[in-house]
Design a protein around this nucleic acid. Sequence first.
DNA 1: TCGATTTGTCTAATACACTAGACAACTAAT
DNA 2: ATTAGTTGTCTAGTGTATTAGACAAATCGA
Lengths: 241, 241
Amino acid sequence: MTVSKDVSGGVALWRRIADAIRLDIVGGKLASGDRLPTEAFLAERFSANRHTVRRALAVLAEEGVVGAEQGRGTFVRSARRLSYPIGRRTRFREGLKGQAASLVSQGLSHRIENATAAVAAALGLKPGAKVVRTESLSIADGRPISRSTTWLPYRLFPDFAERIARLQSTTAVFASYGIADYARASTRISARHADVEETKLLGLAPGAILLVSEAVDVDSEAIPISYALSRFPAERMELVV
Amino acid sequence: MTVSKDVSGGVALWRRIADAIRLDIVGGKLASGDRLPTEAFLAERFSANRHTVRRALAVLAEEGVVGAEQGRGTFVRSARRLSYPIGRRTRFREGLKGQAASLVSQGLSHRIENATAAVAAALGLKPGAKVVRTESLSIADGRPISRSTTWLPYRLFPDFAERIARLQSTTAVFASYGIADYARASTRISARHADVEETKLLGLAPGAILLVSEAVDVDSEAIPISYALSRFPAERMELVV
DNA sequence: TCGATTTGTCTAATACACTAGACAACTAAT
DNA sequence: ATTAGTTGTCTAGTGTATTAGACAAATCGA
């Protein structure tokens, strides 16, 4: 049973159009305040019906990316992507400094569990070793920009949960444990669609694309101290190496 | 059953299911030869009808990722993602060595054009300066893994097109110009859906996700020598920093 | 061989995606 | 005030996505 000549690939046309227009905006081809081409023109450009284009624009309007004004046109309202610099010395809050007025990190949950094979391998522990797992959400200027799961060796950071709640910054918590400096050992980057939970927490349209980074940080003696699995909405963030 | 809000986000359920299963496979949760859960189980897990799950599996079968066998089950056929290491010294062919038996680069087209603002900025040229632009496709073990557009200063590499056709490797061409070493100055990583042309060239299901990297390489004196815009199918490649 | 399990095929009903055309409401320039 | 151009709304028809149920065909172990 072949999947005949399905040109849509399971992604609705209105969504592909919305993605394409959003890409022009967050990628900088269209600046804030610019007028978009008319609905008729866009319909032509995407070989679609005007109604289909209108649906795409309605989605973008809901996101706050564009706004339509009857009789005048549709205009770009916001907003470029944030750039998160990744290197040997990667610091989340520091890296985004200056790009957003406010940056809030929310702890969602903390618990102690036994390391799975993957987590153990990343942290250089034996499978089953006790680890602290924290789930968190970061919000820049009111827009969620990352959803992270972090694992740390329980032996080194038994009360990580309490400290991160108090200090907010991971760097500050490490410092409170006497780790003055730490470095990024490896970052693995992939991309996929958001699942239902991520969609809700990050305030995305279902089916949005996430950049996924798996990062291992090590202390000054190259001992792994954290393994983080972070998901960034591709429409709001880009990673710069 | 009234559908209160659009929960699909314009991405069909069968596609989201296919993406989720593929993710388990290319991400390593399911190894080659493993049996997948039964269709009935997957239908339960994704809160979908068995027919919908079957459509997802049909797509994956067409991609060669799984194969169904009547009466027995559905089995994983291939293959983990390739990892492309990115760092100060980034070499495409070298980075993938050992991960694929064959790695072929196809030149699609070459031409000389005037630099756009973005290209000029990346290469440190004046807008409108002459640049060589090459379009290429890389194929590992018969599967396309990247679609790249590269711009180089015409002044430095007037006959880049001929040399890359002969030497295949970018590193080798640079060497032929007397550039013994070069380094990665910056890499910008984002993600988006593939467009129609990319879908065809890369042999993807329409609506597939691409990892997009914008990279600038510089010579030993920090002079930009190339600006490359590469698109990698997220289901076949991951980037490791 | 039998029975349980699993994939393959068929029919049918409902909701959504997309197209098509027409006209209203609003804006800006002439 | 008129007109051309733009977004907003309405009706309607066709194809796809998804659900539902039933049964056939193949596999495997008891």
